[in-house]
Nucleic acid binder design. Structure first.
Length: 452
DNA sequence: TGAAATGTTGGGGCG
DNA sequence: ACGCCCCAACATTTC
């Protein structure tokens, strides 16, 4: 029998993997393939932190496959066709991705291969085209989307299939792909363990505290969030697995809030699917003429965590050091960049794309637009976070700030979120690069002028 | 998944 | 006892 190829992409797991299960049950020899296809994504090829994660996740997947993962680099279509000729494989399966460039590439491949190619849903609870308004159009407001989504059953996850017979094919060496940073190794502080097993562990650790999620997810010094984002992005765990694991044992306010976050993930995915230019163009076209302020110095201070505003600097340093930032703090740093500094949300979006291990095109662009006020169901532009109040509310003792901004170690609690007001100003810590009241007024002024 | 400005209410001090 | 003022506490409006 001719071999069947499983083309792994953002589904780096064996459990609840419809494409892999299909191949394993076909009785054919199976070739497990991953293609590094940087050309297809254009400006959105994997960023640095994503590459770090990918390296380790592929290592873990290869181990689960007993060393049978085949790595190839190049344009996916040509690479796959060449592998089919080389091995005599005449079937190809994959789980769908929904980024515009992925859809275009995969549609082309399916047209070329006809019945030899088959795709499955491994990444979403529901297909982006399934959930529609009464008028048959995609939702642009979350709550009605969520209500419509709840009416549909979520498929049960599939178990790991019995191990297939693997066909042999030559593979690139992962080391040659140079996905890991060297000189400097800026990822030395990453405290993540990519892979399917660690993803499962993270889910079950989180389930023990999911009932508290509603309250503790907003406190950045705690591990109150699920920390599943990167595992979900790379498909080391499926949203179906998470959904049913929660639903099986929990019916609390916290568990429902968490499920709603999975709903936001779906909402973002369908927004990108139906609006291919979401990463670059404001959904609300009135924002196309917004007079963004270009200031490289301020932007650099923001990226480096040297704005002089403690909660913002703590967040940006957490991002750089660990490849991740707490969700509450993501909203605060984004609001400061867009509103107080007046810098285009796309600059923040690109920085996050490069530095987040969970960088996901749909979630990243939809949420930057949400903060900017130009997205779907977005926070109104005049909703401006005051980083001092946010810090005092969600990090009252300054535990989070002190963890990432050691210059403030000895700053009294009273001034930890506004050290400029302290009688003794802390050493080596910058003065704020923006006056918060003036920045807010400036943003509101521009917004008012634009509305007229 | 805001913050600040403005408005309203009611208790207490005090002449 | 009464009116007046102050101001905290809460509610509403505005951005």
């Amino acid at each position: 029998m001719n071999p069947i190829i499983v083309w792994f992409r953002q589904d780096l797991r064996l459990a609840d993997n419809p494409a892999f299960t299909h191949a394993a049950k076909s009785g054919r020899p199976v070739i497990c393939l991953f293609v590094l296809d940087d050309g297809a994504a254009g400006e959105w090829k994997w960023g640095g932190a994503s590459r770090w994660w990918l390296h380790h996740s592929l290592t873990a997947l290869n181990k689960s496959l007993k060393g049978h993962l085949v790595l190839r680099k190049g344009g996916a279509a040509q690479t796959i066709k060449a592998l089919m000729r080389e091995t005599g494989a005449d079937q190809l399966v994959w789980n769908r991705c929904y980024e515009p460039f992925a859809v275009a590439r995969d549609t082309g491949l399916k047209t070329a291969l006809g019945a030899a190619a088959q795709s499955f849903n491994g990444a979403l609870l529901h297909e982006p085209w399934e959930i529609k308004t009464g008028a048959g159009t995609p939702f642009r407001v979350f709550t009605p989307f969520w209500n419509a989504m709840l009416k549909r059953p979520v498929e049960k996850p599939k178990p790991v299939p019995r191990a297939p017979h693997f066909a042999i094919a030559p593979s690139d060496s992962l080391a040659d792909w140079k996905l890991l940073p060297v000189k400097p190794n800026w990822a030395h502080g990453f405290d993540w363990t990519p892979g399917e097993k660690p993803a499962q562990d993270a889910l079950y650790d989180f389930l023990d505290q999911v009932d508290d999620y509603g309250r503790s997810r907003d406190l950045p010094d705690r591990d109150g969030t699920s920390r599943l984002s990167a595992h979900l992005h790379w498909g080391e765990i499926s949203p179906r697995q998470a959904w049913h694991a929660v639903r099986a044992r929990h019916h609390s306010e916290g568990s429902e809030t968490f499920l709603k976050e999975l709903g936001w993930r779906e909402f973002c995915a369908q927004l990108l699917f139906h609006n291919p230019d979401l990463p670059s163009q404001p959904l609300d076209r009135r924002f196309a003429k917004f007079p963004w302020r270009k200031n490289e110095k301020d932007f650099q201070a923001w990226t480096k965590g040297r704005t002089g505003i403690p909660i913002v600097d703590a967040g940006m340093r957490q991002l750089w050091q660990t490849g991740w930032m707490h969700n509450r703090v993501r909203m605060i740093v984004a609001s400061l960049l867009i509103k107080h500094l007046g810098i285009h949300w796309r600059q923040g979006e690109e920085w996050f794309w490069d530095t987040l291990v969970d960088a996901d095109l749909a979630s990243n662009s939809a949420n930057w637009q949400w903060v900017a006020g130009c997205g779907a169901d977005a926070a109104p532009f005049f909703r401006i976070f005051n980083p001092v109040l946010q810090g005092e509310k969600f990090d009252p003792q300054g535990v989070y700030v002190r963890r990432f901004v050691p210059e403030l170690e000895n700053c009294p609690d009273k001034y930890i979120h506004k050290p400029w007001a302290a009688p003794v100003s802390p050493e080596n810590y910058p003065e704020p690069i923006v006056d918060l009241a003036a920045g807010r007024d400036r943003a509101l002024g521009i917004f008012r002028a634009l509305k007229r």
